[in-house]
């Protein structure tokens, strides 16, 4: 009997240890990645002057390491994608959750999931073969490989995420809220606009942030359709010209750069920048959601 208990005890301890080590190793890996990024990227700050890093030319072969074109390219493509994806995504979510008849909902919901599961390379291919020629002809551009093309595709990639998260949020608004608003003589749209959406806002906000997060990190599609010309975006017209994002730069150039060279270090510096940006987006998102939740918990309790 005594032996049995101590065996049991050992087993418990073993399992606890295993789980704990799995947890700690996750933290360890993140720290290692961060350390690696820093150790490969920070030397760039010593090798290239800040002045040149803030330059407007990215031409590594001749030692021009201006990051502004890449940063502005990323910003332009991402903001464009967000501006397109948010209204469409949230609008569709409202339609599916609130307006669509049941049969339409039952078709649309799985369809959105399927869209969300499309590998981004496939979307990139469609963008490259169909969207970009169509844009070139219809908008009368020199090339269809532009920042705008990238924005459109990134929007297509993030829309399914936005829809399904926002739709869940709307769905979880109690039926009684809608009844109450309708019973006061609000129309269906007034109810959606003034009651259902505000009640679901933290979820809808999360949906938007997740969508933006996907758009920032996306590499493949962007590389395939934006034309990859590192030009500083200094006017709105640049949206319809080729652009180069930070992610695409790393992906395109990392393969052919000499390890330990200045160029190599600068690419890692860009990586640190991306890491920081997504950190900021995520922290803001969770802070906003957390604040909202705390407020609504206080309110609903």
């Amino acid at each position: 009997m005594k032996i049995f208990i101590s065996q049991l005890f050992d087993k418990e301890r073993l399992i606890t240890r295993l789980i704990a080590s799995a947890g700690y190793s996750a933290i360890l890996f993140v720290l290692l990645i961060f350390y690696f990024l820093i150790s490969e990227g920070l030397p760039a700050l010593g090798e290239v002057s800040l002045h040149s890093l803030l330059g407007t030319r990215w031409y590594p072969i001749e030692e021009y390491y201006g990051l502004l074109p890449l940063i502005s390219g990323s910003l332009m493509v991402t903001l464009g994608a967000t501006a397109i994806a948010m209204p469409i995504g949230i609008g569709t979510a409202v339609f599916i959750a609130e307006v669509a008849p049941r049969w339409a909902r039952e078709i649309l919901k799985p369809l959105v999931e399927v869209l969300g599961g499309l590998p981004s390379v496939v979307l990139g291919l469609i963008g490259f073969l169909i969207l970009s020629p169509a844009l070139r002809v219809n908008l009368n551009l020199a090339t269809g490989l532009t920042a705008f093309t990238g924005s459109l595709l990134l929007a297509a990639i993030s829309i399914p995420t936005i829809i399904s998260v926002a739709e869940d949020a709307l769905d979880s608004v109690p039926r009684s809220y809608r009844d109450a608003a309708l019973a006061l003589g609000a129309t269906e749209w007034q109810t959606i606009w003034r009651v259902t959406l505000p009640a679901a806002r933290s979820g809808v906000l999360t949906a938007g942030m997740l969508g933006v997060g996907r758009a920032i990190g996306e590499t493949m599609t962007v590389m395939m359709v934006t034309g990859n010309a590192p030009v500083l975006a200094n006017s709105l017209r640049m949206l319809f010209m080729p652009a180069r994002t930070m992610t695409a730069t790393i992906a395109a150039e990392m393969g052919e750069v000499a390890r330990g060279s200045v160029h190599y270090h600068v690419l890692f510096l860009i990586g640190i920048g991306l890491f920081m940006i997504s950190l900021v987006v995520n922290v803001t998102a969770s802070a906003v959601v957390f604040r909202q939740r705390k407020r609504s918990e206080r309110i609903l309790s």
């Binding site: 009684s176 809220y177 109450a180 309708l182 019973a183 003589g185 003034r194």
Partner: peptide, 19 residues
């Protein structure tokens, strides 16, 4: 909509709007 302005309703669980 006009009907519901004439015939109003209060529910079992108080439903305050998020306002």
């Amino acid at each position: 909509v006009a009907l519901r302005r004439l015939v109003s309703m209060v529910f079992a669980r108080p439903v305050t709007l998020p306002l």
